[in-house]
């Protein structure tokens, strides 16, 4: 394994949680719902995933538990914002605060314990191809899932009837309602999908990225994922490019630190956050890029008239 290959492999590892969380949020936002609770759902996914994997010794049960953790929190968000028509921004913040607190409480007895690492699923023959083999065919199941999700969501959102309904609900909920679509039900489903993806992202962190439980181990990745969705202008393929770029930035800090140019480590650690702000500024300033794809009803509550 040469150095370039090692770098690429670590970039994929750093990018996958961002990609998983962001793809779920992209679908949620396409249905017109802004869920700012990604960080909270992600950290719940991380703690549930770790706890279940540690208890059973099976990382796949951990993944399942992580998904359930994310979905459970997303369900609360859906009840509040859809059934009770609460403000989505405030409810999302509440979700993050609750998720960070609850995960700390659940994870307290798991701090410092050795985790169960999710093993690579090498595809026979293909993974032995020099250089690209381990990169493309020697990953764990969540990396494959993240790639499948990009193509899957692109297909479903833009080539199927379901996707058309989701986008119409997100672009004009009154028209969608008038056409007879159940706006609230569609949004419930999209919020839960977002929760499941954030749960996967969290489980990836505590099972594959660093197989252990550390409080607040998401370290703002949920928020970066939210920024990524804006950066992608709500297109899954651009989202993938963005996630790998951000993953590269996240890793770059570590490498520069290891080389030791005398730059304080804190400055390098703040690099991903600085880059996120810069990326947001570049994309948001470009009105043609953002206006075309921004779901028109994003963040607005919908209460059907009767």
């Amino acid at each position: 394994m040469d150095a370039t290959q090692a770098v690429i492999l670590t970039i994929i590892t750093a990018s996958t949680p961002l990609l998983l969380a962001a793809i779920g949020e992209l679908v949620t936002e396409r249905s017109g719902v802004l869920n700012l609770g990604v960080e909270g759902m992600m950290v719940m996914g991380a703690v549930c995933g770790f706890a279940a994997a540690y208890t059973t010794g099976n990382p796949y049960i951990g993944i399942l538990a992580g998904v359930l953790g994310g979905v459970a929190l997303a369900f609360f968000f859906a009840i509040l914002t859809q059934t009770l028509a609460t403000n989505q921004v405030a409810t999302g913040l509440a979700l993050t605060l609750l998720g960070l607190g609850l995960s700390g409480l659940i994870g307290e007895s798991f701090v410092g314990l050795p985790g169960v690492k999710l093993q690579q699923l090498s595809i026979p023959f293909f993974s032995t191809i020099p250089f690209i083999g381990p990169i493309l065919f020697g990953q764990d199941i969540l990396v494959y899932t993240s790639v499948a999700l990009i193509f899957g969501t692109t297909y479903v959102l833009f080539k199927t009837r379901i996707g058309l309904i989701i986008r119409s609900v997100g672009d004009n909920h009154n028209s969608a309602h008038a056409l007879g679509y159940n706006v609230i039900a569609v949004r419930y489903a999209c919020i839960m999908f977002g929760g499941a993806c954030s749960g996967l992202a969290g489980a990836y962190l505590s099972l594959a990225y660093t197989p252990q439980w550390i409080e607040n181990m998401t370290a703002g990745r949920g928020w970066v994922a939210l920024a990524l969705v804006v950066f992608s202008t709500w297109l899954p393929k651009r989202l993938a490019i963005g996630a790998y770029l951000f993953g590269a930035v996240w890793i770059m800090g570590l490498y520069v630190q290891a080389l030791g140019f005398g730059i304080p480590s804190q400055f390098l650690s703040s690099l991903p956050y600085v880059v996120t702000i810069i990326a947001l500024v570049i994309i948001s300033g470009n009105k043609t890029l953002t206006r075309v794809n921004t779901p028109a009803c994003i963040g607005q509550t919908f209460v059907p008239d009767r």
Binding site: L36, V89, L226, T276, I277, L280, V281, S284, G285, K287
Partner: peptide, 8 residues
């Protein structure tokens, strides 16, 4: 730049 103040 119209950048979302929540995220920044």
């Amino acid at each position: 730049f119209n950048a979302n103040e929540i995220l920044t």
